[in-house]
Every structure is written in C-alpha cells, then in structure tokens.
C-alpha cells in the first residue's frame, strides 16, 4: 500500500474516532452552555448506554435497531432524571456544589454498574456485518463510514433544532441570560431538561458507535472516552456546538496519527498535552468567545 492510501485510511479512522468524541463533546458543551456545569456524569451515561446496547444485542441479536433505540432512549431518560434529581435542587447553590455532585453521580453510576454486572469487560455482538470496501487503493470498513454518516446526520439535525425551532431559540436565550429568558415567558426548567435530553440522546448514539468500533463494555469504559471528549469540548471552545465537533475531529485525528507513527503508548499523553497547551494559550478554545463575567 502506498503512503498516500495509508494516510487516507488513517484519516478515515481518525474521523471515525473523532465522530464518537464529537457526539460526546457536544453533550458536554450543551450542558455547560446552559447551566455552566461540567457534567462529569456525562461519560457514565455513555457507559450505561453501552450496557443497554449489550443487553439487547446479547438477548435479541437479530434486532439491532431495537438495541440502538433502547440505548438512545435509556440515555435520554437517565440524563433527564439525573438533572431533575441531582442538579435541579442545586440551581441556586454555588457552582462548586454542582460540580462535586456531578463527580458523585459519576462514581455512583460506575460503582452501581460494577456491583450489578461485575468489573470484567463483556463482549458486544456486532450490530451489523462489517465489511471492507475498496475505493481505488484504499480499503475502508463500513463501520467507519456508518459512524461518520451518523455523526453528519446527527449534527445537521442538531443544528436545525438549535437554530430553527422555538425550543432551540429558547436554549440559546437561556444559555445567554436565564433571568431575562424567564421574563420573556420561557420555562427555564423545561428548557434545561430538554437540553439534557438532547445531549444524553447524542451520548446514546455515541455509545452505540463506540461499541461498533471497540465491541466491549465495562463499568469504567466511559471515563477515558469522557475525558477525551471533554478535552475536545475545551479545545473547540466549551459552550460552542460547532466547536465541539471540530475539537472531536481534531482529537480523533491526533490519536490515530500518533498511533500510526508508532507512538501508540503516547496517544493519551498527547491528548492531555493538547489540553494543557490550549489552557495556556487560548483557554476559550478555537470557537469559544471570551465573555466578561456579568455583574
């Protein structure tokens, strides 16, 4: 295989991984945008989504769409429930209380999963038969193409939702100035729930795509994925949806290329090095705005 086709293949791998990061990062960013919370439980929602997918695939392997739907629905319900039970009572508390609660929820989910299902990883059956297609000299797996296509469709739908619908407009208004949005008649709790629902549904999609790429589930699978998606969200500019997408792709491509040049043991370190650099050089991220704190 020529160097050129090798590079193309790595780019496609990078985009596949980046798509998963992007889906998760968008959830981080949306929640941060609306309640200024780094929702550390987000990564464990993915873990729960993956277990739901595993459960359905292990028991009803001939109905993969049911597994996908259950996973998305499960994540959505879980995200909304966490917000209602754990975050909503703290709406007027200091932000640090909210952050600590998010970390607590994250541990709760991980340890509950470990208690109920054991710490060992479980294999997830394939959702569809993965084939490789040859385009010229380049071979690509259908899993990569499906992942990238699903991300593209999700992002188009999300953009339409946020830019063109009444609820999307309310989300943008609440994230800019919640009090004024209330004075306009926006139901702020409803808008926040809706944001969690959308972010968590995307995490559900992300968990299925993750299982396509790495077909196993474990109680701590979310933590590294979540951390990297968090780096992607910060890199793109936390609070910005297009930023989260760009950040996701950049982290995905970085990881794949660092591995491709033979430094795969360094790939996590490189991702976190990016975080450190971005925090030092441009803490607001690529598309983030530097907003002055309102008084």
């Amino acid at each position: 295989m020529s160097t050129f086709s090798l590079i193309i293949k790595q780019i496609i791998n990078g985009l596949q991984l980046g798509s998963i990061f992007a889906l998760v990062a968008v959830g981080y960013s949306m929640v941060y945008g609306i309640i200024r919370l780094l929702n550390f439980a987000h990564c464990d929602i993915i873990m729960v989504g993956a277990y739901i997918a595993w459960f359905f695939m292990a028991n009803f392997a001939n109905m993969p769409l049911i597994a996908v739907a259950a996973s998305i629905l499960g994540c959505t319900l879980l995200g909304v429930t966490i917000e209602k039970v754990a975050y909503k009572p703290l709406r007027s508390s200091p932000r640090i209380s909210l952050l600590i609660t998010a970390i607590g929820i994250s541990y709760l989910l991980e340890n509950t999963a470990q208690l109920m299902l054991g710490a060992a990883a479980k294999k997830v059956p394939g959702f569809f038969t993965v084939e490789t297609i040859r385009i010229g000299q380049v071979t690509v797996s259908t899993a990569s193409l499906v992942t990238i296509a699903v991300l593209a469709i999700s992002m188009v739908l999300l953009t339409l939702l946020v830019q063109k619908t009444k609820l999307g407009r309310a989300m943008r208004a609440v994230s800019e100035d919640a009090e004024t949005a209330q004075l306009m008649g926006t139901n702020i709790n409803g808008t926040i729930s809706f944001t969690f629902a959308v972010g968590s549904a995307l995490a559900g999609i992300g968990s299925v795509l993750y299982c396509c790429a790495y077909p196993q589930v474990s109680p701590t699978m979310g933590s590294m994925l979540g951390l990297k998606a968090f780096v992607a969200a910060v890199l793109g500019g936390i609070g910005s949806i297009p930023g989260a997408m760009i950040g996701g792709f950049m982290i995905g491509l970085t990881e794949v290329f660092v591995s491709a040049i033979g430094l795969s043991t360094w790939k996590d370190a490189v991702v976190f090095l990016i975080l450190i650099i971005i925090l030092l050089v441009k803490p607001s991220g690529i598309l983030g705005k530097t907003v002055s704190e309102k008084v």
């Binding site: 009444k166 407009r169 949005a181 306009m184």
Partner: peptide, 15 residues
C-alpha cells in the same frame, strides 16, 4: 440576547 438576531429577540418576546 446579544448573540440572537433582532428578529429572534422579538420572537423570544412572543414566547
């Protein structure tokens, strides 16, 4: 809402 257009601000008013 600084990042919303004039029209979107008015639409927010009619929520």
């Amino acid at each position: 809402f600084q990042n919303l257009t004039v029209e979107e601000n008015l639409e927010m008013g009619a929520y």
